[in-house]
Amino acid sequence: MGTLTVWKFDSAGGAEDALHLLSRLQKEQLIRVNDAAYVTWPQDRKKPKTKDLGKLTGAGALGGSFWGFLFGLIFFVPLLGMAVGAAVGALSGSMAHAGIDEDFVREVRKQVVPGTSALFVVSSDAVEDKVLGPFKETGASLITTNLSTEQEERLREAFADTTEPQHA
């Protein structure tokens, strides 16, 4: 599957705005985008708008049904009730091997709220130091990734806010 990374933006349009950056990084061969999608959630909407980015990635490695299922699991299943939720929960067990488990769903659901957006990227062959800097400049924050714990920690450290005052 590649690496699934979810970036949160503190504005409803942030993820969509970051698509130009992602496209540029791919053209520069600094990352291979296997598939991508984004969620935008304007402050005045009851539910988010989702978009599969097959046009950015060609045919898309995972396709719209994957993104539809994932976004349904994260944003819409809680609204459907426990009976449907249990059935979907059984299906989602197969996604856990890719790092998409209950913790992933819970974390994304907690952070992507009205007034925010998120960019979901399945990638490979990323030149980390050349990709992280430009993403950090967008104000994005890492919600979650299926990288190893050590790899994720390095990624989080790279995105740590270095402007915070040190407490004595």
Rank of each mutant, 00 (worst) to 15 (best):
D129M: 08
L4C: 09
K55S: 14
A90G: 10
T3G: 03
K27Q: 10
A126N: 09
R154M: 10
A90N: 06
A12R: 08
T50D: 06
F135K: 03
L132I: 13
T144F: 03
V108R: 05
G63Q: 03
K46P: 06
V33N: 04
K46E: 14
G63R: 02
S23Y: 07
F9I: 04
E107F: 00
D101N: 15
A98S: 09
E153V: 00
A37S: 15
G81S: 11
F69K: 12
A18M: 04
Q26F: 05
V108G: 07
L56W: 02
W41Y: 08
L56C: 05
E157W: 05
E152Y: 03
Q166L: 11
A18P: 04
A118H: 07
Q26K: 13
T5A: 13
R154W: 03
E152K: 11
N146A: 06
T162V: 12
D10A: 15
L91G: 13
W67F: 14
P165W: 12
V112A: 05
T116N: 10
D161S: 10
P42R: 08
G93A: 06
A168I: 00
M82Q: 11
V122L: 14
G58T: 05
E107G: 04
P42H: 09
V84E: 09
P114R: 10
G54F: 06
T5Y: 06
D103M: 01
S148K: 06
A126V: 13
D52W: 14
N34W: 02
V77A: 11
V39D: 02
A158G: 15
V33H: 02
T57D: 01
K130I: 02
A118W: 08
I143G: 04
S123G: 01
M95W: 11
D129Q: 11
A37I: 08
F75M: 11
I74K: 08
W7E: 04
E102L: 07
G63M: 07
I31R: 04
G68I: 15
I74E: 04
W67D: 05
S92G: 12
L79R: 11
T50N: 05
G58A: 06
D10G: 14
T116E: 03
F71H: 14
L4G: 00
G13L: 09
E128R: 12
V127F: 08
I74W: 09
T163Q: 11
A140N: 01
G89Q: 04
E102Y: 04
D52V: 13
Q29C: 03
A61D: 02
L21H: 02
Q151I: 04
I74H: 07
Q151R: 15
I143A: 07
G14R: 08
F120N: 03
A37K: 01
F104R: 03
E150V: 10
I74L: 09
A59V: 12
N146G: 01
R32E: 15
V121Y: 02
F69R: 08
F66A: 00
S94D: 11
L21N: 03
V33S: 01
S148M: 10
F71I: 12
G68K: 13
T138C: 07
R45V: 03
T57R: 00
T116P: 04
R154K: 15
L80H: 09
A83V: 13
A118F: 06
V105Q: 01
R45G: 00
